[in-house]
Design a protein around this nucleic acid. Sequence first.
DNA 1: AACGTGTTCAACCGCGAGGTG
DNA 2: TCACCTCGCGGTTGAACACGT
Length: 329
Amino acid sequence: MGKSPCSEKSGLKKGPWTPEEDQKLMVFIEEHGHGSWRALPAKAGLRRCGKSCRLRWTNYLRPDIKRGKFSLQEEQKIIQLHALLGNRWSAIATHLSKRTDNEIKNYWNTHLKKRLIRMGIDPITHKPKLDTLSHYNNNGSNLSHMAQWESARLQAEARLVRESKLQHHNNKMHSSMHAMMLATHDDLDSPTSTLSFPISINENLIPTTTTIPIATEELMSETEKRMCNDTMSCLLQDHDDIMVAVEAFRGAGYDNNSNNDVTLTSLSSDFMVGYFNNDDINMVFDSNDNLAQHNLPTANGDGSNCDINFEENKNYWNSIVNLVNDSLF
DNA sequence: AACGTGTTCAACCGCGAGGTG
DNA sequence: TCACCTCGCGGTTGAACACGT
């Protein structure tokens, strides 16, 4: 297996890179490209292993790297992406232009993770920790707020389940495209409008759901296309984008089945979840239509609770993001 | 100024995926 | 199918730095 011979070879330098070494590596790559990393050190006149050269280049010397303080937007994005993708730093890095996976990983471990822990949020699940309740209990008055929050949240979820099932039923009833807004606004408001607990929901991130026939674009009427555009405009720029997303969905390994509509729900300005209405498969796409995650389990196998899973996640993300924002000021 | 402690982040290590013969 | 190799990823380390006493 691919165990690196780096540490086993004598005469190879380790540790921090000198400016001279950096210069040699940059000049060589600019002239020849990196090609085989294993062969590069000898060609470039470096007493380093190829692995060390690759790391130095990708994490430090590459010209398209942005360094310095992370912006608030970048922090929010990292938190959201981590909630969705976990410790897949390279995947997260692809959504933050000019940031390396190593830098994001370090920033998470040294700043964001600690901040979430301080706020009583589990940095792995992105949900409030159970011991947060006892923390609040020990501190007195806030326990009732936490309990009220959880109670309101559960009530909202129960309503969402009911409405989701109704929506799923409607989807089955109509085989052509339907653009519809989920009636979730009140549900999302309820925990915050009645409580003083400092979690609020960002109303800009209310999800929109659109059901699109997976059949070819030609089958869609102009009206349908327009409805599609209107509903998805918060996420996708135009009809072409939507069709690209559908193609990406279809291209992810599933057969084209004209009876199998796809439902797309925008989670945020960067992510969209989709699922086949008669399937238990659902997927998450980023704004570039890349498949970020798929095959998330569903409770009843018919896709009817997909909205609930992602609705719940979205709520937590917004809560986390808002809490982070609150802690900054 | 000296020391101890905490924090940061560049760099390393080991593992697994994927390619190739 | 198997063995070998390279590459990329995520976890971890430790030197350098910051800060408090």
